[in-house]
Design a protein around this nucleic acid. Structure first.
Lengths: 198, 198
DNA sequence: CATATCATGTAAGAGGTTACATGATTAC
DNA sequence: GTAATCATGTAACCTCTTACATGATATG
């Protein structure tokens, strides 16, 4: 038989999900523990593909059962490094070959705005202002990264960073063009640059 | 007791989720069937808050049990219209008062790009091109809507549409600034504006 | 009379979040 | 020694997707 029972089910050859595949991708640069993977993923893909600790340990366990990764020996602090197997490398490559699906955006603030007629304008404006702050901070951070490592980044990492920057800029411009009715009384016109210069 | 057993669980007063709340929001304009709600949601919030038929029927059933909506009489074709109850109206308002959470973006294409070093450049370029087409079409559609109903839209709907337009424009610009290494040989430079006439 | 669209729902499972539980090591 | 951080994992639950199943009505 080519199936074996495990945790009340069978190990199937179903295609990798993107989350698991990403872990395999990261393991190309050497063995890593679940903890390492969580941090790596957060830094490298966290802005457009979030994942949690829980998921990482679960996918790792499943992939170990499927033979895509292999656990090494326990190191200090119970560190359990996982490394790619040949099967894992191949599964990753197969995954990478399939056309990536459409992007999904879930933006609760837009929901609140869409139903804004039922909400006190000051309250809506407060939500808007608070979200704008978050986006401004994110843009600043991205630009800081670009200014720092920018030139040294490989083109792929650079491309994803560039996406983030363009996205955040677009969102900020959107905030700043919202009608007063939604933004509330014009308070912050400063987008992070001084009003006199630029 | 203020709890009653239902479908193997108890009806709790836990806060509404955004999907259920949206349905309540739509019901403010009169009774609707699950089918109606699916279509309404798809048109009005589908671009930043997608939901499926399955979810709608499930949330409707749960909200009926919780007394937030009430099923009316069956109409032709088994139409089962639901209407807002006072409790539902209040639950909606309470939901709308809470600060909307951060937006989530899940963009598989960015994952593929991030791991692009493991993929044949032509293949990556093909994925990129195919996604670009989708975004260009979406932008065109949004702009068509704006040109049509634009002036007549209420400011809230207008604001969400505007978000979509700015987002799609930013994404297209991002596509067009991707290095050749990722985009592949420059083929389509036309971004939607006419080079000669169109 | 056949096909498309309207209409409702269930079942199963995948994917994702949150809370809980535990303990080692490092830094102060 | 005490707090922060590193590190692993489980349990419960919620959310979302996909596939299945069924049937009525309108359109050509």
């Amino acid at each position: 038989m080519s199936q074996w029972t495990v945790k009340g089910g069978t190990v199937k050859d179903r295609p990798l999900n993107a989350t698991a595949a990403s872990l395999l991708g990261f393991l190309h640069s050497g063995p890593m523990t679940g903890w390492d993977l969580v941090r790596t993923a957060d830094v490298l893909i966290g802005d457009f593909w979030s994942l949690t600790r829980s998921q990482v340990y679960r996918e790792l366990a499943a992939m170990e059962r499927a033979g895509l990764v292999a656990a090494g020996e326990l190191g200090p602090r119970e560190r359990r490094p996982f490394s790619l197997t040949d099967a894992g490398r191949e599964a990753f490559r197969r995954w990478l070959e399939i056309e990536p699906g459409p992007e999904q955006i879930r933006y609760p603030l837009l929901l609140t705005i869409a139903f804004g007629q039922h909400l006190a304008p000051e309250r809506l404006a407060a939500f808007v202002a608070s979200h704008r702050t978050v986006h401004a901070a994110r843009l600043a951070e991205y630009e800081r990264v670009l200014a720092g490592a920018g030139a040294g980044l490989d083109p792929h990492a650079r491309a994803t960073l560039d996406f983030g920057i363009r996205y955040e800029r677009a969102v900020l411009e959107w905030f700043d063009h919202l009608p007063e009715q939604i933004r509330g009384g014009a308070d912050d016109q400063e987008s992070g640059d001084q009003p006199g210069a630029r």
